[in-house]
Computed example of a mutant assay.
Amino acid sequence: MTEAAPENVDEYVAGFPPEVRDVVEAVRQTLLRAVPTAVESISYGMPTYSVNGRRVLYFAGWKHHVALYSVPTMAPTLEKELANYRKAKGTLDFSLTRPMPYDLIERLARALVEVQGKR
């Protein structure tokens, strides 16, 4: 039997062991600070951030990393900073064994909102 999917982001975060939960919550707060107009929801079983009705970014916590999803190729200067975190098309993985680059995540979230607004 599988666990029920979380109904909201609070439930999602609460489902992690403490050492992962703290980082997942910090990523969440970073995204909310970067995009205060974002609406949080759960989609595809993970936290989703939407602006003006458009899904901009998803993230998920894992045992060894936190991943951000649906991240297109960004402007060259930002993309250069993201290069070490790219694992698959549209996916960034941030290892839990290294310092979390909250500043980079915040700048990325702001840039994504700007890019999405032009589509």
Rank of each mutant, 00 (worst) to 15 (best):
P36C: 10
G53E: 15
P76L: 11
P47Y: 04
T48S: 13
K89T: 03
Y58K: 05
G15A: 12
L57D: 01
P18W: 07
R54Q: 15
K118V: 05
W62F: 13
L92G: 01
L82I: 00
Y12A: 02
M1Y: 13
T91E: 09
K89W: 03
R28L: 01
M100G: 00
D10N: 13
V51C: 12
G15R: 07
A67L: 04
E114M: 06
M46W: 10
S50A: 12
V56P: 05
G117S: 13
P36V: 04
Y58F: 07
Y49C: 10
A75L: 11
P72N: 08
A26Q: 11
S41P: 14
T2V: 13
A83F: 02
S95A: 13
V13C: 07
K87F: 11
D10C: 03
Y44R: 13
A14L: 09
M100T: 05
V35P: 15
Y44D: 13
K89S: 05
H64E: 09
A38Q: 00
T37L: 11
L68W: 04
K118Y: 06
D103K: 14
V56F: 08
E11C: 06
R33G: 14
L112H: 03
A4F: 10
F16H: 10
L68C: 07
Y58L: 06
L82Y: 09
R119Q: 15
R54G: 01
E19W: 15
V39E: 11
Y85V: 02
M74P: 01
L82D: 02
N84T: 05
R54K: 15
R55H: 10
Y12P: 08
G90R: 07
E114A: 14
N8L: 08
P72W: 11
R33N: 13
N84S: 12
T97S: 14
R119T: 14
A14Q: 10
R28V: 00
Y49K: 07
H65L: 08
V66E: 09
D22E: 15
G15L: 04
R110F: 06
N84L: 04
V115G: 02
V24S: 02
E106M: 10
P17R: 02
S95W: 01
K63R: 09
T77D: 15
E81Q: 14
A67Q: 00
Y49I: 07
Q29S: 12
G15S: 05
V35L: 11
L57R: 05
E106I: 00
R28Y: 01
P76W: 02
G61M: 03
A38F: 10
L32R: 15
I105L: 14
Q29P: 01
M100Y: 00
K87H: 13
R119M: 15
